[in-house]
Design a protein around this nucleic acid. Structure first.
Lengths: 215, 215
DNA sequence: AGCAAATATTGCGTGCACGCAAGTTTGCGT
DNA sequence: ACGCAAACTTGCGTGCACGCAATATTTGCT
């Protein structure tokens, strides 16, 4: 059920998609993110510039896609893969942590932090977990028709975004009126504490779902 | 403390901002959202096209801004205005409901639902509550340094987005495998139930904040 | 009032996103 | 094997976003 389309076609499409994003990443690393035109990327991937925009709707998307690969979509799969008896909140946290913890290339991160435009698209890309995640949560809670799964998924995505934004921020000047400046810890810690804030909501939703089952 | 800048300058800026967005709305209503170029808007507002983009960074933003006015920023103010003894979750829900319930012009809504691009920008605009809201929540909880306020604000914004998206969707074909299709109720109801999902998280955060105060 | 610094506006140039209408490739039924 | 239909690619044209540098306006200061 993974792909509805036929083999050769879909295969070629994925091939050019990969070609495009790898070309984009390579060129961006070589010449700097701002010195790469979409025409260059298209040429390097062997397609027309117009075709580039059939695959990516902005110049930055291809670069970001190369860095994040399909991480976003795998989060939902990882959630669905956890055994049903695990707390939803835990399943989610584990899935996200797992997917965002793979060792990253240091150059790639520098690249992303370098350009504001790239940072923005990177954060936007994190929002892509929302829909698949909503489906996965819906599945787990079995409460189709309620907005809860969508809200929870959207909130989780939002939390991830907050964590990533914090993480990408240069430590900045320690200028707070009151006191301590948190030195913007490690990404796993940031993700954990962001998601922890939402835990009660997940628990409550799960609770309600189980009550509905039981009754 | 509302405006740091001096009078005449800021006044003129707001004037042209308003002129731009009202011109945008008027033209969009007159000729349809897709038959309005930014040059037209700029001309109608009496500024150069380049200036348009000093105020709005996309063609759609001005139109949406005219419809939503400063609703987004007022939400945070409304939260801050609630007495301190009100539950945070309630303060938030009331503030949002209050701001999103003003009677809307029917034409304007049709306009927004008409064009997908407008719908998207409209939803994006709702995300603008995030930062002011985070500040307001931070104030209320008094827990600077914790990611909680940011996460809660982002989640609330996400919930609002979910509700709005549902609300803007044409009822669509009642095609579900299992059964009932919720006829995408009234906006207040949608907002209420979306925010209700997050209530436990708000309560828990408030609880924690109070414990920290007490100790 | 007058002047210098700060801030806005404008025109220009470049690259980009995307609708549209060919042209090309792939898939499938017969 | 053939050919039609669906899906993908491509070139073109249009409008758009935005950096930059020149110009105009406002402000605060004396």
């Amino acid at each position: 059920m993974t792909t509805r389309r036929t083999g050769l076609r879909e295969e070629k499409k994925q091939a050019t998609r990969v070609a495009l994003r790898e070309a984009a990443l390579r060129l961006a690393l070589e010449h700097g993110p701002d010195n790469v035109r979409v025409d260059d990327i298209a040429e390097a991937a062997g397609v027309s510039p117009r075709t580039y925009n059939n695959y990516f709707s902005s110049r930055e998307q291809a670069i970001v896609a190369a860095v994040t690969a399909e991480r976003e979509s795998r989060v939902a799969a990882a959630v669905a893969a956890r055994p049903a008896h695990v707390r939803l909140a835990d399943a989610l946290a584990e899935a996200i942590l797992e997917q965002y913890t793979e060792p990253r290339d240091h150059d790639e991160l520098l690249l992303i932090t370098a350009s504001p435009a790239l940072r923005d698209t990177f954060l936007d890309a994190a929002a892509a977990i929302e829909h698949p995640l909503a489906a996965a949560i819906d599945q787990r809670l079995g409460c189709t028709g309620t907005p809860a799964p969508r809200v929870l998924a959207a909130s989780a995505a939002a939390a991830v975004r907050v964590a990533l934004r914090q993480w990408l921020q240069p430590p900045a000047a320690p200028l707070t009126t009151s006191g301590l400046v948190v030195p913007s810890g490690s990404l796993p810690d940031l993700l954990r504490s962001a998601l922890a804030t939402l835990e009660p909501a997940f628990d409550a939703a799960e609770e309600q779902a189980q009550q509905r089952l039981r009754q």
